[in-house]
Design a protein around this nucleic acid. Sequence first.
DNA 1: CCTGCGATCAACCTTTTGGTTGATGACGCT
DNA 2: AGCGTCATCAACCAAAAGGTTGATCGCAGG
Lengths: 216, 216
Amino acid sequence: MGEIRILLVDDHPVVRAGLRAMLTEFEGFTVVAEAPEGGAAVKEVQRLAVLGEPVDVVLMDLQMGGGMDGVSATKALKELPDAPPVLILTTYDTDADILAAVEAGASGYMLKDAPPEQIRSAVQSAAAGQTALAPEVAARLMGRIRNPAPVLSAREVELVELLSTGMSNKAIAKQLFISEATVKTHLVHIYDKLGVDNRTAAISVAVSRRIIRSAG
Amino acid sequence: MGEIRILLVDDHPVVRAGLRAMLTEFEGFTVVAEAPEGGAAVKEVQRLAVLGEPVDVVLMDLQMGGGMDGVSATKALKELPDAPPVLILTTYDTDADILAAVEAGASGYMLKDAPPEQIRSAVQSAAAGQTALAPEVAARLMGRIRNPAPVLSAREVELVELLSTGMSNKAIAKQLFISEATVKTHLVHIYDKLGVDNRTAAISVAVSRRIIRSAG
DNA sequence: CCTGCGATCAACCTTTTGGTTGATGACGCT
DNA sequence: AGCGTCATCAACCAAAAGGTTGATCGCAGG
């Protein structure tokens, strides 16, 4: 019944154009709005709701340069009355934000390099209120839920960030106004949780799990 | 005079669709072929040349999952008779392959999140045989040429790779069949070249300069 | 109320790194 | 032949990191 009304959220004009082109080629899809970041997306959803032309599905990128990031935007959208389903689109299936996004209420998670057909069916499922996960992502998620990776506390992430700049324990201690002993204790816990036994391996794992971002 | 005939090379269907949509909206641009990786791109260029419908500009992504990467493909294309200009498209303006691609003969370098207008004029310049660089990229390149970053030797890169797994000097020495003393000497040189003074900072810099890739 | 967890700190000891100096052989370029 | 670079190694010392044990405090959840 009727068209599926879609809002695209991505900071790359090229990607937005690609999704628009790809989706409008299929029957029954209309891209009714676009936004370059989360804040604008929320406003668009509200605006269209007021106009009586509500959005049926939001396609949301996770990595966005400026403005509100994908996870926050998903959270914000889900707090609206008549919140639309949010389908997350991302480049990396290793993204640490997968869990965060799903917990924030995303109904699905697709990789950007998925074939058009897969994207089409994911949007359709999401619009129908179902959950749509890319097989790779689903498998990964299930694995994590069965064997959950320990989550670093906020303080620990802070430590890892400083760690990755190459600071010594003493320097980190000074920066955070804590003792060197405390820094060492935190590090032991971090090593435990990341399954490593030294700082070098820790930042390597942290980068590949996208706990921290490497400048770029 | 006439249409500018374009070949798109990118492993993401979404990005290809976006570029195609974006470019065909402008006057005078035709996307005559697409390829998901470098090898196919080379074949396409040859095929079209034989048909008497040569490609005027190749738009090439650097990061491609499978097959021939962007730098190799650029090199291969430039060895063809009547090689078309290659315009590199990438996500990261910090990419260490910038230099490699330009050295391989790319006539320009654009960021994927550039506004459509900028992409249009870059393609036009490239087709006209001129060089087209995004301002950010140009500045960065000039900076590097004036103040060239010391290049790690092959052996040193090997060291950094092992380093990033968190191995100790002793373990690295064993792995490479050299003494621990030699490992330390190499490390001192690496620290020098990267402008850091410990292994943790070194791998951080190495990752952000894409000297090594972090799994993901 | 008790338990668990996160954050904080101390003291002690071992291992690893980092910094320095100096030396050798191989290779390529001029 | 001489120069520079790369890769190799040694010995020594100071600084940093890692490992262990044990302790205090506050807060959230059952």
